[in-house]
């Protein structure tokens, strides 16, 4: 059986202009990615693309042989925000990634299979089995868990049909708030934010007072300062049970990284070195059971 992991592109966490989004996914269509997650997962006010536009994009990507999945909003605060979640869950064609239990409820009650994103808390086999009984087909491991937890959860759960996806590259989604930090930075009320997130294609850096790039603010979301990169460790991820490696879109380098990673999975060591090139600026601590921000030397791979 081929155990080479598949590559996925997670939902774009940032707010890009429509033309940029369209150009980006046109390149994704030509890239060697297997699964593409689409939709606005951070802020309901970001409407450069409407739900119908995302569903249309899903159709185009599906036409190129990718599996398209629609991703739902993570933090739901107003009843009106459930409208978009419901629209995705009722799309009638594409698999849906639930990023909140509300979407799990909708999908389960419609008898639909579903994926859970990294912000749905699955920390043990009992939880995984419960969601599996409700229709869970694939789960993205919460980003603060690592190799040992993954192996133990999958070992206990014994669900051979279930697919496991690991957040392997990109800025880690760390927190969600009622408060919009981008609006706060601009001294604007959240309700009159002017959609200023669009000015920051990869969020705004948060440094400590001694210059360490510690966090990134992205509207109501807080991300890691460092980009996490587990791609060089892909054999370790695969051995621990990861069927799919997720790359989270960044404005630069994502498409090239997909190409390089595909070559690396096909056995090209030079391509793996490319994927590992910016190592000093990355982190991988969560995978090794340590602080997420740390960079741990990986074991030698054959």
């Amino acid at each position: 059986m081929d155990t080479t992991p598949k590559l996925s592109l997670g939902p774009c966490q940032y707010f890009w202009p429509r033309t940029v989004v369209e150009a980006f996914y046109a390149r994704v269509a030509d890239s060697p990615v297997d699964i593409v997650y689409l939709g606005e997962t951070v802020c309901a006010k970001r409407r450069e693309l409407r739900p119908e536009d995302w569903i249309g994009l899903a159709g185009e990507l599906a036409g190129t042989g990718k599996q398209a999945v629609l991703s739902t909003l993570t933090l739901i605060e107003a009843r009106s925000e459930m409208g978009v979640v419901r629209r995705f869950c009722d799309n009638g064609e594409f698999l849906v990634e639930a990023n909140d239990i509300a979407a799990v409820q909708l999908l389960h009650s419609r008898g639909l299979p579903f994926v859970t994103g990294p912000s749905v808390n699955i920390y043990n086999a009992a939880t995984l089995r419960h969601y599996h009984r409700l229709g869970l087909q694939r789960w993205v491991m919460p980003v603060e868990l690592g190799r040992d937890a993954l192996q133990a959860i999958l070992g206990d759960a014994a669900l051979p049909q279930l697919q496991t996806e690991v957040f392997a590259h990109g800025r880690l989604p760390l927190a969600w708030s009622a408060r919009c930090y981008t609006a706060r930075y601009h001294d604007l009320p959240k309700d009159q934010c002017g959609l200023r997130c669009i000015e920051n294609p990869e969020g705004m850096p948060v440094h400590t007072r001694e210059g360490e790039h510690f966090l990134t603010i992205n509207g109501i979301q807080t991300q890691s300062g460092r980009v996490t990169n587990l791609l060089p460790e892909w054999r370790d991820l695969s051995a621990a049970g990861a069927d799919i490696l997720r790359l989270s879109p960044l404005p630069e380098g994502t498409i090239q990284r997909l190409h390089a990673m595909r070559q690396a999975l096909d056995g090209d060591p030079a391509a793996l070195a490319t994927v590992n090139a910016d190592r000093a600026q990355t982190c991988n601590g969560y995978w090794y059971g340590q602080a997420g921000m740390t960079l741990t030397a990986q074991a030698e791979h054959p």
Binding site: N121, Y123, E144, L172, L174, A175, S177, F214, G292, M293
Partner: peptide
């Protein structure tokens, strides 16, 4: 100030969070 149970800032810095 973050949605509870979904805040990993602490484990990002220390390896330990409210969840874990």
């Amino acid at each position: 100030i973050m949605a509870e149970g979904r805040c990993l800032l602490s484990s990002y810095a220390t390896g330990e969070s409210p969840n874990t």
